[in-house]
Structures are given as structure tokens and as C-alpha cells.
Simulated assay, not measured.
Amino acid sequence: MESVKINTEFITLQQLLKTTDVIQSGGMVKWYLAEHEVLVNGEHETRRGKKLYAGDVVSIPDIGEFKVTTE
């Protein structure tokens, strides 16, 4: 599991996907979420603006898991 450190209250799912190089640009996120399974804390998520807080886990089959942490 890879950690994604934030220094703000939250990060959006779109920002996390870009930060971890899962997608190349923000314009790809809507398509990516429609075509691929993305789980946030074990639940399927399709909202690019979903707020992720410290302790949340994003799982993407065949790519990996990312845990949001604070500095």
C-alpha cells in the first residue's frame, strides 16, 4: 500500500489519481472512473470530486492501494 501525504484537510479523488500517475490529466478522470473500478474504503466510487480524508484507502484493481495520510 502506497501512502499519499496531504497537508490540507482533504484531497479530491481526481487529485489523488493525478498525483499517483494513474491518469495523465484531469480531463481523463471522468472517463477513467466510468471505465475502471475504483474503490474508496471498499465502496465503488464514480465521483471525481469525492473528498478523501486522512485514513481513507483508495483501491484500484491491477494498480494498487493508496492510503491518504497527513504530514
Rank of each mutant, 00 (worst) to 15 (best):
S59D: 04
K18M: 14
T19D: 13
L33M: 08
K51C: 03
N7C: 09
S59L: 12
I23F: 00
G27T: 02
A34D: 12
S59K: 08
L16E: 03
F10I: 00
S59V: 07
Q14H: 11
G49A: 13
G42W: 07
K30D: 05
P61L: 01
G64T: 11
W31Y: 14
I60S: 01
E37T: 00
N7D: 09
L16M: 11
L33Y: 06
L16K: 12
T12M: 04
L52Q: 07
V58H: 09
V40L: 06
Q15R: 15
G64C: 05
E37S: 01
D62I: 09
K51M: 07
D56G: 03
V58I: 14
A34I: 12
T19F: 11
L39P: 02
I23K: 12
K30E: 05
E45G: 04
R47V: 14
I11F: 04
H44W: 06
K30T: 11
I63Y: 13
T8P: 03
L52P: 10
T12D: 01
K18D: 06
E65D: 10
K50G: 05
E43F: 15
K50N: 05
I60W: 02
E65L: 12
A54Q: 14
L16T: 12
L13H: 03
D56N: 07
Q14F: 03
E43W: 13
R47E: 07
A54W: 07
L16P: 08
L17R: 07
I63N: 07
G64I: 12
K50C: 09
Y32D: 01
Q14K: 15
G55P: 11
V22H: 04
T19A: 10
T19K: 15
D21V: 01
L39G: 02
G64Y: 09
T19N: 15
L39F: 09
I23W: 02
V58C: 06
E43L: 15
R48L: 08
K50T: 03
V57I: 10
T19C: 07
L52M: 08
T12N: 06
E45S: 09
A34Q: 15
Q15A: 12
R47M: 11
E35N: 10
G49D: 06
K30A: 11
V38K: 01
G64A: 06
